[in-house]
Design a protein around this nucleic acid. Sequence first.
DNA 1: ATGATGTGTGCATGTAAATGCACATGTCAA
DNA 2: TTGACATGTGCATTTACATGCACACATCAT
Lengths: 122, 122
Amino acid sequence: MTARARAAARIVELLDAPLLRALTEPARLEVLRTLLVGGPADVGAIAAALPQHRSVITRHLQTLEAAGVVRGVREGRRHVYAIDGAALVGGLERLLGEVRDLAAACCPPTDLIPAARLRRRD
Amino acid sequence: MTARARAAARIVELLDAPLLRALTEPARLEVLRTLLVGGPADVGAIAAALPQHRSVITRHLQTLEAAGVVRGVREGRRHVYAIDGAALVGGLERLLGEVRDLAAACCPPTDLIPAARLRRRD
DNA sequence: ATGATGTGTGCATGTAAATGCACATGTCAA
DNA sequence: TTGACATGTGCATTTACATGCACACATCAT
């Protein structure tokens, strides 16, 4: 029971990670797509391909970097960002692995509804 | 090149799926946690365990059901929801699998920065 | 029939995040 | 030095979404 609650809390903690939050934003996904298609690029080049302002692209890149999806390097006066493909796939793999184990240990794989045993508020 | 653009668009399309968007919301994760700990329950029971209003819980459960994470069944006048653990893990696995394949085919696994070949806006 | 209970929806409000502008900082070329 | 260029940050605005209330609808009991 307590073990079950701890497993559930751990799952929620995993899903609340900055990785998923960074990926669930249309503009940030467009930034990611731009980097996927064109390869490493600086802030100005990415902003030139997207409707948002340069400062907005800067902040999105910071968010993506904090999530470990991209990696930025100062190159003179430019800031060149590149996708960290291994970190992206690796992060998702680690997330999935733990969620899978915890889900198996937490909720019985048979999640069929008994049609009885309903809980009510006290 | 065009194949690369298509692969990138596919990745973005996958990440923009309602599954991740449904999971990146603290209140919805609490709903999920409540179901994980207590098992199948109706809207009133879930709402009794959380600070939000019943109508809010209703909408969150609709979102989670649309994402395929939970499954709801009318049981008389109650609406009983249960976690679809297989769908949750399976959804994440399919997502990861496609992202991994596409990332391998799209961006060369060597994502090192050439320190040259910078793109500029025209 | 009546009333009580459980749920979902319309609508207005609150809130957190994205957006854009202006300015400051740092870098390269003269 | 000066000026042009690239980036990042403070601040106000916009926007998307969560939240809560009121009401309507359905179901069960009497």
